[in-house]
Amino acid sequence: MFERYQRQTLLPEVGIQGQETLKNSSVLLVGAGGLGSSAAFYLAAAGVGHIGLVDDDVVDQSNLNRQILHTPGTIGKSKVASARETLKRFNPDVTITPHPIKISSENQLEELITDYDLVLDCTDNYPTRYTINQACIHQQKPWIYGAVSEFEGQVMTLIPGTTPCYRCLYPSAPAASEGIAAVMGVAPGLIGTLQAAEALKYLLDTGKLLTGRLLFVDLMDIHFDIMTVTRNKECPACGHSIFSG
């Protein structure tokens, strides 16, 4: 039944029961670009039963250095449609739900995430990231932050009501626009993979999550650092939430 997943069901942390859990799980990826590509591939590979993809963009040739869900043949096509095609070919067992929309409000995202167990932040901008933070706090939905720049990236797992939130980490976004961000494809490749690893651990309820800790990676020097992230009791986003931890 789970022959495709034999190498992972051999793991005591997974087993047949864990594989059933993954099959019955749903993950929403906000962004079907660089981070979303590697994260979606590995979630589909692991047999996560339902993957939702949110992106209003279309595939452009300049995406192809890092967005491995897309191909020259899907240039001009909706990213979520392109991603769905690729993922369905890769693992037909997985249900892929495309959401070809731009996240324009917290309410809109809150409505969307109610159908999913977990959210992955695979966005490329600060406003959407703060919207994910707020919507997930309101819906008490766990999410996994990821972001990249050049050869570098950062990852953190956030569980509302238990861990610090994104606004505890970065109270506000930089004022100035960075213009077109320079990114080497392996950076979102690795960070998206780490997001997928965090997602699988969360769904399987195993391992030690990156909660209250920020992982910073510099691939140019192969430098990995883990920083402590503290909850801000005065945080305008989560400061009034009831915390269990």
Binding site: V148, S149, P188
Partner: peptide
């Protein structure tokens, strides 16, 4: 020193 990053 680690600034916020945006790209994805």
């Amino acid at each position: 020193i680690i600034p916020a990053a945006a790209a994805g």
